[in-house]
Amino acid sequence: MIPNILSIAGSDPSGGAGIQADIKAISANGGYAMAVITGLTAQNTRGVRALRMVDPGMITAQIAAIREDIRIDAVKIGMLGDAGTVQTVADALEGLEASVILDPVMVAKGGYRLLAADAVDALRTRLVPKAAILTPNLPEAADLLDMAEAVDINAMRDQGERLLALGCEAVLMKGGHLMGSAPDLLIEPSGVTELIAPRIDTPNTHGTGCSLSSALAARIGMGDPPQVAVRHAKSFVTDAIAEAHRLKVGGGHGPIHHFHRI
């Protein structure tokens, strides 16, 4: 059965991140992609120029329309922008029996803040406890915990365990910001799984976090256990980065090649 995967996130008109990347990653990993748009950005591969949030009532209406008609097998949550949107999405998902993959999108690669500072507590208290898997990079984990950013794998593990204690079922700590290798840690109540992939020297990494969480949602929606789903999603993104040179999109951080396997 093809799983129905709902992405709740912002739009990237350049196609490399956000809803556009989510649809590509979900589709490339065997899911049927649905999309609720939380915000509109004006951006390209060089950075974000502007952000306008969607009215909370419209976000609620989008989610309600899907819930009343379509089976949802998993949900991926990305950019939410502000505290009101966090609360709106949390309320709209109440009672839904589907695994939630939460990608706490806070800052774009170019440095533009995509989650207001006063919304971090709402994300921490309303949505982190709903997550089957939380997928922060190191700056996002530090922001959620109000701590200094992890600088080694031991600090990564400590912060991942602290995030797990906030109520989610598992945490995937993404170590791409560390120097040297790029280890990820899947932290579950049963233990810690270390995932290592070679670091690829390329500027084409726009949308990697969006794509990883969306691929993960597709695999979880198919029924994969977390360790299997995480390994599949990480392999998919690693290969998509390695094949990104086949695309010629913009002059900044280019997108990954979602459809490299076709």
Score class of each variant (00 low, 15 high):
82 D>Q: 06
260 H>C: 03
43 Q>M: 14
227 Q>V: 12
193 T>V: 07
251 G>M: 13
94 E>T: 10
256 I>S: 03
89 V>E: 08
132 A>G: 08
15 G>C: 03
37 I>C: 14
231 R>S: 15
209 G>F: 12
71 R>I: 04
58 M>I: 09
144 L>Y: 02
114 L>D: 14
172 L>Y: 15
254 G>H: 03
131 A>F: 15
47 G>F: 10
121 D>G: 02
52 R>Y: 08
188 E>K: 08
222 M>T: 05
73 D>K: 00
86 V>K: 00
258 H>Q: 03
238 T>A: 05
121 D>Q: 06
245 H>L: 05
215 A>H: 01
245 H>N: 06
160 G>M: 04
61 A>H: 11
67 R>M: 01
55 D>S: 09
50 A>S: 14
18 G>E: 15
65 A>Q: 11
255 P>M: 01
127 L>A: 13
156 M>Y: 11
64 A>E: 12
66 I>Q: 02
199 R>G: 08
38 T>F: 03
138 L>C: 07
231 R>Q: 14
175 G>S: 14
29 N>R: 04
42 A>W: 11
122 A>L: 12
80 L>W: 06
130 K>D: 04
243 E>R: 13
15 G>L: 00
93 L>D: 14
148 A>H: 13
182 A>T: 15
199 R>Y: 13
42 A>S: 12
228 V>K: 12
194 E>S: 11
158 D>G: 04
202 T>C: 01
17 A>H: 11
48 V>N: 06
35 A>T: 01
110 G>Y: 06
152 D>F: 05
56 P>N: 12
159 Q>D: 07
142 A>Q: 07
